[in-house]
Design a protein around this nucleic acid. Structure first.
Lengths: 157, 157
DNA sequence: AAAGATAATTTACAATTGTAAACTTTAGTC
DNA sequence: GACTAAAGTTTACAATTGTAAATTATCTTT
């Protein structure tokens, strides 16, 4: 019996490929997944079946349909899935480095007029209450002492 | 003998914690790492030593000093490490979802005046050449056919 | 130089992940 | 209804990761 909840487990890199197809097609049969991924990823069909099963067990895919060619549906939206991965990453970055990281991402990726506009207004909204600087939050309370050299982080650039 | 190059291997979640401390302190001894992480992560000292060794093997840490309390130095800067992780993630996101994802990140995180200003000008620079929309690039050539339901992605929101 | 304290290396072991073969069941077809 | 093809389930197995104990080597201090 497939899980209904995604037990706080993670979507791995390989599994992510499966999810992408499911999201793109708004649900897919194993046949479709095998077709797409055996080519794109050079995986054997067995591999793809395993990934589907694991995603079901983890609660990220639900099987639907009564008779055999079942369909697999994502239990979260693509944006939710992305948020999951992105937050897991950003929650482990030094606060001081998030700004430069976002700047780089904005520079590096192609964004639509609309997205740029939204970004611009978001920035305008945040500006009035933005702090002068965002300090490093790596070591809780920056409990560094003299004998360990202190928090060098503030000198980072 | 420790690797000099990071053989295109990854920094895992646990290893990342070690790197953060090394970066924050601009290099650290195993003693410092154990002090910091045994508390923060509730790890045994042995665990931390293993992580240090693996990071050395992967080429992300270099040991320096001639006599015993060695120091471990990162072979890449924190920003480079972050870029590595961030790119690994963003390279596997549907292009169409990157805009909304960045908007959300900018909203969600505290950014300094300076970072907001840089972001703003970056946006201004990009605007003139920004496309009306950024299409989904999930399925290479979107080689979806009628019998698989076609690329539903363009309808995503 | 012997002991004791530190630091580093080896060994360990279960869980997860990547990858897949083998086997079983079921939907269609003759 | 028997056969076959497609779909789904079980089993497998090595590599990586998380976590750590045991062992060995090296400073430091009597």
């Amino acid at each position: 019996m497939a899980q209904t909840k995604n037990n706080n487990r993670e979507i791995t890199a390989s599994e992510w490929e499966v999810m992408r197809i499911v999201w793109t097609l708004s649900g897919a049969t194993s046949h479709q997944l095998i077709e797409s991924l055996s080519e794109k990823m050079a995986w054997q069909e067995s591999t793809i079946k395993t990934l589907i099963r694991r995603l079901e067990e983890k609660g990220f895919l639900n099987r639907e349909g009564a008779s055999r060619p079942f369909r697999y549906q994502a239990t979260l939206s693509e944006q939710e899935g992305i948020n999951l991965q992105v937050d897991r990453l950003f929650d482990n970055l030094c606060a001081m480095h998030i700004g430069p990281t976002l700047i780089r991402l904005v520079q590096q990726h192609e964004l639509s007029q609309a997205d740029l506009a939204t970004l611009a207004s978001t920035i305008t909204e945040k500006a009035p209450t933005a702090p002068e600087t965002v300090p490093c939050n790596c070591l809780t309370n920056c409990q560094m002492t003299e004998n360990n050299g202190g928090c060098q982080h503030d000198e980072a650039k």
